[in-house]
Amino acid sequence: MLIKKPSDLRESDVTPKELFLARREFIRAASVTAAAAATGVLGAGFDDEASAQNPKAEKFANLVKSPLSTDEKLNSYKDVTTYNNFYEFGLDKGDPARHAHQLRPRPWSVKVEGLCDKPGTYHIEDILKWFPLEERIYRLRCVEAWSMVIPWVGFPLGDFVKRMEPNSKARYVEFRTLVDRAQMPGQREPALQWPYIEGLRMDEAMHPLAILGVGLYGEVMPNQNGAPIRLVVPWKYGFKSIKSIVSVRFVENEPVNTWKQQQAREYGFYANVNPDVDHPRWSQKTERRIGEFFRRKTLPFNGYADQVASLYTGMDLRRHY
């Protein structure tokens, strides 16, 4: 029997990874221009893109695909990880990607306190084992009128809350970000009051769309996106989705969230995406989807009105912005 040599290709004939990535980047860049004219979205194939940018990132196995995901075109891994508002690392949108390597997301623990029966300090490794992880593809709408579509990895916040057994006096959940000037250089400046604080009403926290995110693009959360654990509340402006959480407290009164404390006339506690209520300085009627050149209409509750509008029946959303 004639056995052929498996291949006449030599090792040296294979394109080195850096080179084909560079080529791919070049092709992408060139196609941006073409796509721009046709209002195309950037973003390439999902797994490719993720592994290309961060070959060392740990991947999650057996993610459950959530029926709550949108089928809209994803923003690229690069867009999602280089265009961030995370003032703990600086005010520029490129700062988090530049400085977040200083954050050490392991070991990490989350302290749970307040009006609940299971307070304690929980290690991130344990938290990750409690719940099956899901892939949730959500729209993210920033209060600055831009938006993205991001494939998060996470689990329902409601499941976490239930496990902590909040008592009947608990009406709100308050979250806090890490404070550590050594790991978060932006905190050396008093840009905001640290720690960053956010909160949700209990029924909002229990809503199935609200998740705790621990990754994106099938991989462990990049530091600049709020590693190791962050909130994702897709019907609210992005600043509600607090990053790098170290504390969860069950409380009776509405927490004063950081941006409201900073400028109450411009940022409220609820911060539901609402095209009918302008930011005092700019319109919220439209948004720029990252990767597109023209603006698109902003939808009430960021397009999640069918699922969440009932949480706010009877409330004046002009007053509770």
């Binding site: 860049a29 060139a30 221009t33 280089t82 265009y83 949108k93 490129g94 831009w146 720029r288 050149f293």
Partner: peptide, 13 residues
């Protein structure tokens, strides 16, 4: 920058 795709994630901004 427009042609080389060097203007970041939000070129219009």
């Amino acid at each position: 920058g427009v042609f080389a795709g060097e203007l970041g994630a939000n070129p219009v901004e």
